[in-house]
Simulated assay, not measured.
Amino acid sequence: MHGLGNDFVVVDAREAPVAMDADRARAIADRHTGIGCDQIILIGPGDDTDVSMRIWNSDGSEVAACGNATRCVPVLVGRDVSIRTAAGVLHAAREGDGATVDMGQPRFQWNEIPIAYAMDTQPLPLAWGELANPVAVNVGNPHLVFFVPDVDAVPLEALGPDIEYDLVFPERTNVNIAHVLAPDHLVMRTWERGAGLTRACGTGACATFAAGRKLGLLAPSCRLDLPGGTLHLAEGPDGQLLMSGPATHVFAGEAAL
């Protein structure tokens, strides 16, 4: 499945358990010797929810949240669902050719990102090359958001790894660059922790929207254009982030990996 080109191998383990670890995730995600994907998604039964979801990046690291993958869950299951994740309970509703997901409230405190030591996060007093003073926000996983004049002019493939692995981020970080076209419209690109450049990042879109709202740059609802397509973000009545966009089932099969 994929969400705007952010592609996943989704393993349905609701009826029978499926073993997954870093080595197996890397083997499945390898685009030359495996199936190939940005993330591996394991859908299992939920104790207090409809289903559970675990997520591994293509480098084998397990992460707590993935917005594009969350939209795939109700499409796969065929109905609205509550989903237990390491980041908490998410609610996803079928909508058109995709879904709307309540991603919860963003967190901005330095120890919630997390950052190695106390500092202001709005913005961070840090710089990497031409990228400086980002907003740090956690939306189930850690993100930095840089607002720039031109997202295509930034060498994100070069700067992304340096920022991701900077020791100031003990759990590494995702890196987003965005340009505000209007209060209700922006464009963005993401270097995704553990996966590199991706065509879309759902949590990155949520983080960027949250950062733009925090800085007063964006309206309460917004269109976000990514290399893979468009997402729509809105702020809920309790400050929660509501993300809407497509989710596509590509093929189903079996693999001996």
Rank of each mutant, 00 (worst) to 15 (best):
P74N: 13
I40T: 11
L218R: 08
N68Q: 03
L131D: 02
P134N: 05
M20T: 03
R31C: 09
L217D: 07
D12L: 13
H2F: 01
A16H: 15
N68K: 01
P237M: 10
G253C: 08
N141F: 09
S61P: 00
A99F: 07
R223M: 14
R223C: 13
T248D: 00
A182Q: 11
Y117I: 00
D102A: 12
I40N: 01
G67P: 05
L231Y: 05
E164H: 08
L257K: 00
G98A: 08
G46L: 09
D48V: 14
H91I: 10
R172F: 06
T190P: 05
R189Y: 08
G140T: 10
G202Y: 04
S82R: 14
I55S: 02
T208S: 15
G98H: 02
A87N: 08
D97F: 00
G216T: 13
G229H: 05
G229K: 03
A252E: 14
C201L: 11
G229C: 06
P155Y: 11
C72G: 11
P125L: 04
G202M: 04
N111L: 00
L124F: 00
E192T: 10
L241N: 03
A219L: 13
G212L: 09
T190D: 06
S52M: 04
E112I: 01
A16G: 13
E235V: 13
A132T: 14
G239L: 12
M188N: 05
G5I: 05
R107Y: 00
T198A: 09
I41N: 01
E130V: 11
A22W: 06
V151S: 03
L90S: 04
C201H: 02
M119F: 00
D150C: 12
P134G: 04
V89A: 10
E95H: 13
R199T: 00
V81K: 02
E164A: 09
V180Y: 08
E235N: 11
A127E: 13
A25R: 02
L124V: 14
E15A: 15
D48Y: 04
I163P: 01
F169R: 08
P183T: 10
I83K: 07
R193T: 08
A86D: 13
W191T: 01
R31T: 10
I113H: 05
A158E: 15
G239C: 12
A25T: 04
M20L: 15
S58E: 06
V151E: 05
P237A: 14
T85A: 11
N176C: 11
E112C: 02
